[in-house]
Nucleic acid binder design. Structure first.
Length: 516
DNA sequence: GTCGCGTTGTGGCA
DNA sequence: TGCCACAACGCGAC
């Protein structure tokens, strides 16, 4: 549905080759990665992708076509150009993509097409609006606040919902071996039998079903307020969990948006952006637009909208955070949900991102790899937000790793589910197990420091230190825009167990990261 | 220069 | 559940 590229292809040709190229950049197994998967994608997202491809193939077959799965040896554009040439293609249709990696990849293909006399049609259909158009409307610069974005954007165009019962058949594929969509086990990630399978299945069929189920409860849709959602809800998440389907193109943002509007029309009142359900789709477009119009959006260096803050590396804290071993059950439960499900509630993401110092884009990379809805523009945008580097600047607002979760889930059911070793810890101590008397720990069969880690940092000291350093960095940005380079103050996170001694600084300021 | 505003803080209190 | 103080940021309209 809402696939103008496919629609154009079927209208203008007697033969259509529906191609998906498996990209080794995303799929090549990396045994050195901290959890199963490739360097850039955890198995949860790869599984979701393969499920989506199998569903797409099945749906194409119902229309008399099929998916042609190509495996790129190295560069995806090489594989596409070879197929264009070998199959003597006259017109190439694909959805445009604004991520820098995709832009470079697609440019190599369109350059080849232009040189070979192949017609190219590349419509915008991944987002509600065309980011380039919004930037132009706004005077050549992306709107940097949500409100100005919404004012500039206006109403999104309607989805392309042409109904058809068949597609042109595929053409002669010559010597190409037509393989089915591979199974996860065939991609070489090792023995995955022990891996938890997330409760979300990929594919357009599942996406449309999930959307209909969400929209069925009209009162829920009309009253939806994102900040009021419960991040600890896991049996029935507080949001639609349609983001992975949007990410993989299983669900059209435009179609979803217009279905939400239909619901609004049938109810007396409804919430409004930014907190409303439709407002969430506008947030998505906001980050796509800013990311498209901002060079070096994914990093601090050379990023004009990003505050220059001298982040410190704390390898010990980072690894504990990544692996869900910080000693703060609320934080660890969220990170374990991330690794197992590839998804957690937005406020849970805020909580853990805030915890990992205010900032440090190392965390960005962990999210990017493990989330099934991993999205370059949105992930980077939100890490800029949470780190008070851009968009949001109230660095005194810090999520407590103890009281924030407790507010929603005083009994700690979420923690008990994702951290079974804590399942018998009394609720008085479940958010701070290190405060439980030894007799209580013994009775709960969970000794802190043995069965569950001691806190890696003292949150009180660490957040105080963080505020101080943010204040210094902001002051420095006001003065001349030069980041604080000195090493006058302590590490932003301290060890808890050694009485507040500083963790040795492995480096002064963060190295700019290569685009990943 | 001033002032109002900004999706999603915490802790205390009614 | 909602309101307030706390301490307070940058942005953008004026």
């Amino acid at each position: 549905h809402d696939n103008p590229a496919l629609d154009a292809a079927r209208r203008s040709a007697a033969r259509v080759y529906p191609v998906f190229v498996l990209d080794p950049r995303y799929l090549r197994p990396d045994p050195a990665a901290p959890s199963p998967g490739s360097a850039r994608a955890g198995v949860a997202r790869v599984r979701f992708l393969l499920e989506s491809l199998r569903d797409l193939d099945a749906r194409l077959r119902r229309l008399g076509s099929r998916l042609l799965v190509l495996r790129a040896r190295d560069d995806v554009s090489d594989a596409v150009c070879a197929a264009l040439k070998d199959w003597n293609i006259g017109k190439l249709c694909f959805e445009s993509d604004t991520e820098p990696y995709a832009l470079a990849r697609d440019k190599r293909v369109t350059d080849f097409a232009a040189a070979s006399g192949i017609e190219v049609f590349s419509p915008v259909s991944h987002t509600l609006f065309d980011p380039a158009e919004i930037i132009e409307k706004n005077g050549g610069r992306p709107p940097l606040t949500y409100q100005s974005f919404v004012a500039t954007a206006g109403e999104p165009p309607k989805p392309v919902m042409e109904k058809y019962s068949e597609l042109p058949p595929i053409g002669d594929t010559g010597g190409y071996e037509l393989l089915p969509v591979p199974k996860l086990e065939e991609l070489g990630y090792g023995d995955l039998s022990q891996e938890y399978i997330p409760p979300f299945r990929g594919g357009e069929t599942e996406a449309l079903k999930r959307m209909r189920e969400s929209l069925q409860d009209k009162e829920w849709v009309a009253k939806f307020e994102k900040p009021k959602g419960d991040p600890s809800a896991f049996l029935k998440p507080a949001t639609t969990v349609l983001s992975p389907y949007l990410k993989f193109g299983c669900l059209s943002a435009r179609y979803f948006y217009h279905c939400i509007q239909d619901v609004y029309r049938s109810t007396k009142t409804h919430t409004k952006p930014p907190v409303s359900l439709a407002g969430q789709l506008l947030w998505r477009d906001f980050f796509y637009t800013v990311s498209f119009g901002t060079p070096n959006f994914h990093q601090m260096e050379g990023n004009k909208i990003c505050k220059q803050i001298p982040w410190r590396e704390n390898g010990e804290l980072f690894v504990a955070w990544r692996d869900g071993r910080t000693g703060y059950p609320w934080i660890d439960a969220i990170m374990i949900q991330l690794r197992k499900w590839g998804w957690m509630h937005h406020l849970a993401r805020h909580s853990v991102a805030c915890f990992l110092t205010r900032g440090d884009l190392q965390g960005r990379d962990v999210f990017e790899r493990l989330l099934i809805d991993s999205d370059w523009a949105i992930n980077n945008g939100n890490w800029l937000w949470l780190s008070c580097s851009s968009f949001f600047y109230q660095y005194h607002r810090i999520y407590s790793p103890i009281s924030f979760g407790k507010k929603y889930d005083p009994n700690g059911d979420y923690i008990r589910h994702f951290i079974p070793v804590l399942k018998d810890m009394p609720k008085e101590y479940i958010y701070e197990p290190w405060t439980a008397p030894l007799s209580v720990q013994e009775k709960a069969r969970c000794i802190v420091g043995k069965d569950y880690p001691k806190p890696v940092v003292d949150h009180e000291a660490a957040s105080k230190e963080c505020r101080k350093r943010m204040e210094e960095a902001y002051a420095s940005n006001r003065l001349g825009g030069n980041p604080v380079k000195g090493n006058s103050s302590n590490s932003s996170r301290r060890k808890f167990s050694d009485g507040g001694q500083d963790v040795p600084d492995s480096s002064m300021s963060k190295q700019p990261r290569k685009r990943s």
